[in-house]
Simulated scan of single mutants.
Amino acid sequence: MQLQVARIGKPHGIRGEVTVQVLTDAPEDRFIPGTRFMVEPASAGPLTVDSARWNKDILLLGFEGIETRNQAEALRGAKLFIETEELEEEDDEGWYEHELVGLEVRVGDAVVGRISGLRTLPVQDLIVVEAPDGQEILIPFVEEIVPEVNVGEKYILVTPPPGLFEINVDDSGETPGAGGSGADEAEPGKPQAGDNA
């Protein structure tokens, strides 16, 4: 089975480059020089990437053997495909940003924020969480830290390592206003509880 990753648009310049409509979430990985694509119609390919560069937000590709504007024009409308064995496994385990944004982030039974975005990085993805106080927290999107994603019930379950979320600050034994044995440790110049000014 094959997956379409791009559709060729109009020529760019006179040296055989073409614009492409990108249909993949990882263009930096899919269009590197040397990558070979199956093409529809088959008579136009296969095509091997010779160069890839961005002109603002438009991807420009050059292909081996395509050296003139006329040759590039002949490719207009052609669809580029790659084998999907690797991609199928990734897609089964992956999530798109629009599926995650708005989901509650839970640590146990506590709701610690909501997902506001997803940052896709070469090493690992990061979930962007907005805490109730407006603070932005980044969570590595790995199974050890995010063991459960439940889109149907609109939440993810997180098991954060120490320090990732400071959600237990008020339960650390230093809760402000907790009284206790602090009477003998009041700061100089400050009245202790029960003092009359």
Rank of each mutant, 00 (worst) to 15 (best):
G194E: 10
D29N: 03
E89S: 13
G65T: 07
V112Y: 02
L126Q: 07
N55W: 11
V18F: 11
E144P: 01
A78K: 08
H98P: 00
V105D: 00
L126M: 15
P188S: 07
V105I: 02
G45T: 08
P191R: 09
W54C: 04
D171P: 00
L100V: 04
V146T: 11
E153G: 01
E40F: 08
D29R: 04
V151D: 01
L23N: 10
K56D: 15
A183V: 11
V149T: 12
P132G: 08
D29Y: 01
G62D: 09
L157C: 00
E40L: 09
W54E: 07
D29W: 02
E153F: 08
D29F: 02
G34F: 02
G189H: 09
D195G: 10
E130P: 01
L47H: 06
E148Q: 15
A186W: 13
R36Q: 00
E90L: 15
Q192D: 13
A44F: 05
V107N: 12
W54L: 08
E148K: 15
V49H: 06
T19D: 03
E73N: 14
R106L: 14
T120L: 06
R119G: 05
I82Q: 08
E174W: 15
E148R: 15
G177L: 11
T19C: 05
P27V: 12
V151R: 10
G163A: 13
E166V: 10
R15C: 03
A131Q: 09
I139V: 15
L80Q: 02
G113P: 00
E64K: 14
T84K: 08
N196Y: 09
A26I: 04
L23V: 09
T120R: 15
G177I: 14
R76A: 13
D184L: 14
V20Q: 04
P46C: 03
E166Q: 10
I139D: 00
R15A: 14
T120A: 03
G113L: 00
G94V: 03
L164R: 04
L138K: 12
D171L: 09
A183D: 13
E73D: 13
Q4N: 12
M1L: 05
T68N: 12
L61W: 02
D170G: 03
E153N: 15
L60D: 03
V49Y: 06
S181F: 04
P132F: 09
E40H: 10
L138C: 05
A6D: 09
H12P: 01
E93P: 00
I137V: 15
E99T: 03
T68M: 11
V123N: 06
D92C: 07
D25I: 04
G177C: 11
E99G: 02
E104N: 11
R53F: 15
S116L: 04
T84R: 10
V128H: 01
